[in-house]
């Protein structure tokens, strides 16, 4: 490809619809968590995030097994790493929320859950991945290495 300075390597791909589907399910679970204030719901979602962060997103597997066959072949695929990174960010919020609900600080639980819900809703509705947007900021903030 002329004009390419350094190409981005082609990594493992996922069907773009899978993370979107996962985001809708996540949003629904987080709504239940907020309405019930249950540490167990938040903890369960934290486990789901943890599995997603290491590449085994349970909602993604549900999508693949039950939803995708009804929708047909993937129309588009994307890098598998951004959704995984976002799941790790989600895990962070879910852990804080579980600590809040588990130790009798429901306000902390609700605020952390609400943040995760905003991210899940943005991902589900317009495909915006907040965790992925933060990634370059994080890289930029790291100290400059002198060769």
């Amino acid at each position: 490809m002329p004009g390419t300075i350094s190409t981005v390597p082609l990594p493992r791909q996922v069907d773009v619809r899978a993370p979107r589907f996962g985001a809708w399910v996540t949003a629904a679970v987080l709504v239940v968590a907020l309405l019930t204030g249950s540490v167990w719901v938040v903890a369960a979602q934290a486990l789901v995030f943890a599995a997603g962060a290491v590449g085994y997103a349970p909602y993604g597997l549900l999508f693949k097994r039950f939803v995708a066959p009804r929708l047909g072949a993937p129309t588009e695929t994307e890098d598998a790493r951004p959704p995984r990174f976002a799941q790790a960010v989600g895990l962070l919020f879910a852990v804080v929320a579980a600590i809040g609900y588990g130790t009798g600080i429901p306000v902390l639980g609700a605020v952390a859950t609400a943040f995760a819900l905003v991210a899940a809703l943005l991902n589900a509705s317009i495909g915006l991945c907040l965790g992925c947007e933060l990634y370059l900021y994080w890289l930029r903030a790291r100290p400059v290495r002198t060769p």
Binding site: L35, V107, A110, A114, L117
Partner: peptide
């Protein structure tokens, strides 16, 4: 608290979107 947080999250997500 949960209901308020839920409504706030919905509003923030809508505006950001």
């Amino acid at each position: 608290t949960g209901l308020i947080a839920l409504l706030a999250a919905l509003a923030v997500a809508a505006v950001l979107a």
